[in-house]
Amino acid sequence: MVISSLVISSSPTAFDAVCDSIGKMPKIEIVEKQDSKLAIVLETDSTEEAVTIASEIQSLDGILNVELVSHFFEDEQKQEENQ
């Protein structure tokens, strides 16, 4: 289990469309929308998967910036250590 939270800024005109697209993506929960920014939480199996989703978001039309706020990967780390 890897949990990350991100803040996404979009252009104001594209904001509704961006919310729409992100809302349809899997493993994403939108927690707050404000002034053409939104805060989301990602729950993925691995960091790689989180990176892939973040990249997908970045490639959407009207996205200005994707910022990582927090990233929890203790479980993953333990798995890696065990291996």
Binding site: T47, E48, A54, E67, L68, V69, S70, H71, F73, E74
Partner: peptide
Amino acid sequence: RREFIKKGFVIT
């Protein structure tokens, strides 16, 4: 992955 983590607040 490295870049992704570097930017953020890391909870471990």
